[in-house]
Design a protein around this nucleic acid. Structure first.
Lengths: 243, 243
DNA sequence: CAAACATTAAATGTAAGACATATGAAAATT
DNA sequence: AATTTTCATATGTCTTACATTTAATGTTTG
């Protein structure tokens, strides 16, 4: 069924790949139980620890789940959007921090993607999404809010906007782009005037979505992008002067 | 440094999480060597196989790489966009196939995202990107091309469009959306007339990008989405009739 | 007879020790 | 001085063993 070319090295990686390919190709279907570790060890002619290492690799990608006990074993996991979010966010975050992606580049990507959701969100947003956005706007206006909390609320606001499009695939893709920006955003200090302006734009955005006004939402998002980029630039410049 | 609450179970998952968090927080930086497996086993007070399972989990996410030999060990890996692509594509593909995402939903997401790249691509596309697109258009016109090869060329064409935006973050996000569509697209049979129309739109798209015409590219993409969706719908209906 | 309890078997989770193998660095040889 | 050999150290793998979880089975008891 799934053979293993007796090539060079890294048996556990090879075994993991063989099983992963079987899942992707559909040979192994959701909730199907894999053979026990001992059986897999026999099948691939390796030891049980090696099989276990392979299974852990797959578990790390949420491709399988394991259960202990009599009827336990490894089962093909139904990969849900909820499960995939954290991985997507972790990967995106590390990609940005490890590759020295500039704030401009990340910001441009984020707003480009978000603007692609705006027309759909203007059309389909539910009252729930609007309520979440209004609630976050309200929170952003609270006095004594830390910069980090302000950023977190900003993320929640924008995720509600994206979710309003009612397309899980879009929400999944956007989660990475929006959340991965947070560490970069956290480097910014938001003055009271900055916050007021951002809240103003957020309100404008929520109003546009409430009125099913796609082009208004798009325009506001463009302004928001412009404002955020300039804000980051001025913060960077100021920081460079002091050092 | 990285402690392990002596809670319930799944030691290897806990250890993996501890190390992963250290990488995300920046306590472990790129190319830094982790302690040897034996040292980690001492540190966490577990056995070496357990440590190894944890390391394999991290290796599966490309967070570390291992080297054998005297100066070997586990090193924090610099996660590159190139490395992240395949994982992103695998996850996106499985998400679509396991969650019964409709063709319409996937298609809508894909084109929404792609349209967000169009203005940037119209502005920045290099001669190289244009050449790739023209080459793929030419391939799509070859007689005797299988449906699968046509789809593969379609993917290559659209990836060139996306890459033309010159934003690696966008390219990364889009790779998942575009490539994950391929299994769905492969279910479609493209008649000669369909192909001709698609090639026509592709040409129009390349022309618009060459002329730095953002709105023209956007309009064409909208038409392409419309055409693809309708095509899929009619294929599905025809298939339902015969059964 | 039925419900509560104890037993058992099968599976994963963990541990310990051993050997194989790769690889760079130091030591020995030419 | 250049080359070869040796060696220490690390991961890769195997073997065996025991712990733990869990459901099914068997047993006892009201």
């Amino acid at each position: 069924m799934k053979i293993d070319p007796s090539s060079s090295a890294n048996l556990s990686a090879q075994i993991a790949k063989a099983i992963r390919d079987s899942i992707i190709s559909g040979a192994l279907i959701v909730d199907q139980r894999l053979p026990s570790e001992a059986e897999l060890a026999d099948q691939f002619e390796v030891s049980r620890p090696t099989v276990r290492e392979a299974l852990k690799r797959l578990a790390a990608q949420s491709l399988i789940r394991t259960q202990r006990g009599a009827t336990g074993g490894a089962f093909v996991n139904k990969l849900s959007f909820e499960e995939a979010y954290p991985q997507q966010i972790t990967t995106s975050t590390l990609l940005l921090s490890m590759n020295a992606v500039s704030f401009e580049t990340a910001c441009e990507a984020r707003y480009a993607l978000e603007r692609s959701c705006a027309p759909l969100s203007a059309q389909r947003r539910s009252a729930d999404h609007l309520a979440t956005m209004r609630a976050e706007i309200h929170r952003q206006g609270q006095p004594g809010l830390t910069d980090e909390a302000f950023c977190a609320s900003d993320v929640a606001f924008h995720r509600a906007l994206v979710d309003g499009a009612g397309n899980p695939v879009l929400s999944y893709q956007l989660a990475g782009a929006v959340e991965a920006m947070q560490p970069l955003m956290n480097m910014i200090t938001f003055s009271a005037r900055d916050r007021a302006r951002i809240i103003e734009l957020h309100t404008q955005l929520a109003d546009a979505l409430e009125a099913h006004d796609a082009s208004g939402a798009d325009t506001t998002l463009a302004e928001l992008e412009h404002y955020t980029t300039n804000l980051a630039r001025s913060v960077m410049e100021k920081r460079q002067k002091t050092t």
